[in-house]
Design a protein around this nucleic acid. Structure first.
Ligand SMILES: [Mn+2]
Ligand SMILES: [Mn+2]
Length: 304
DNA sequence: GACGTAT
DNA sequence: ATACGTCAACGCATT
DNA sequence: AATGCG
């Protein structure tokens, strides 16, 4: 991508610093990162369209300091959607909402490396459209343990007849997504996420834990259900991660879990994959009703 | 990355 | 003109 | 009330 004013997805964006190195180990520049976002825009947008999105910006690349941003900056263009969103503490955010591909490119030009959407839509903040379980191994590179954890979560969800999908995190683990029908509020969804996490940990107490404090995990895979709250986010499918090698959080099929690792895909190789196969998350599976799933899970936990 | 202030 | 300082999130279980 | 965590 060239510097200066570019016409991009029907918007004009003033691109800067295209030769600045953002990923030194991979030799990837900001311009190349912008190219990635132009190319991935359709798929990335498909998985966060209409949601409030927090961005993690690194204006000086991986070597510089990064920060989260939710509020739309005063200099952000008029066409970029923003929305007043109440905080739980009574305050208000002027939150970025992504609803067009140009927004992704604009934000990437602002130094955004990671996109972190809410689990609910801007038009219905109180009713999440998905539930996410984040599986983190005790240490980087413990792929076997976190793969096994993912299979165990999948098994439980299958028993509950709930459709689920998996992606690499681009970091150390995997994320399991459960599409929801929007019938339940955060209280129900958060409680369900907690019960799912606790249920799978009860089945495999030596391998899995829900302990939020690192100290309590003792070599086990952390099943993080706490993402499932109002105003919380998890990294988007097809977002780049701010890690060496420019890894990408990549949707995969359950059958790929045998071979794919958390950082298998990155900005440099993702399009080879997508050239050979469709987005594994292209077709929306049936969306679950959280309250009903909670009832079934309660019954399952009583029996055994 | 953008902006305000100081040199 | 250029350099420098400052700003850019949140929710919540647990202790 | 403060902390740890993602
Ligand atoms: Mn994680
Ligand atoms: Mn800077």
């Amino acid at each position: 991508m060239d510097a200066g004013e570019q016409r991009c997805f029907s918007r004009t964006i003033d691109i800067s610093n295209v030769d600045k190195v953002f990923f030194p180990d991979a030799g990837l520049t900001k311009g190349e990162l912008l190219d990635y976002h132009v190319r991935i825009a359709e798929l990335l947008l498909a998985h966060l369209d209409g949601r409030p999105v927090a961005v993690k910006r690194y204006p000086d690349g991986l070597e510089g300091q990064g920060f989260f941003q939710k509020n739309a900056g005063s200099h952000f263009p008029d066409w970029l959607r923003r929305q007043d969103i109440p905080k739980r503490d009574g305050g208000t955010l002027d939150h970025v909402v992504v609803d067009e591909p140009a927004a992704l490119v604009y934000l990437a030009d602002q130094g955004t490396i990671e996109f972190h959407p809410w689990l609910s839509l801007a038009d219905d903040l109180e009713h999440p459209v998905e539930l996410v379980l984040d599986l983190d191994p005790p240490a980087q590179g413990e792929v076997g343990a976190v793969r096994q954890a993912a299979r165990q979560v999948h098994t439980l969800l299958d028993e509950l007849e709930v459709a689920s999908r998996i992606k690499t995190s681009g970091s150390a683990g995997f994320h399991v997504h459960v599409p929801l029908d929007g019938s339940a509020g955060w209280d129900v969804v958060s409680a369900l996420a907690r019960s799912l996490a606790e249920a799978v940990c009860e089945r495999h107490p030596d391998a899995l834990t829900t302990s939020h404090r690192k100290q309590g995990r003792t070599g086990r895979v952390f099943v993080d259900w706490l993402r499932n709250s109002y105003g919380q986010t998890s990294v988007a499918a097809y977002s780049v991660r701010a890690r060496p090698g420019a890894p990408v959080a990549t949707p995969i099929d359950w059958g790929e879990l045998r071979t794919v690792e958390p950082r298998s895909y990155d900005v440099g190789n993702l399009f080879r994959r997508l050239g050979q196969r469709d987005d594994p998350w292209r077709d929306d599976p049936p969306a679950a009703a959280a309250a009903q799933v909670s009832d079934r899970l309660e019954a399952l936990r009583e029996d055994g």
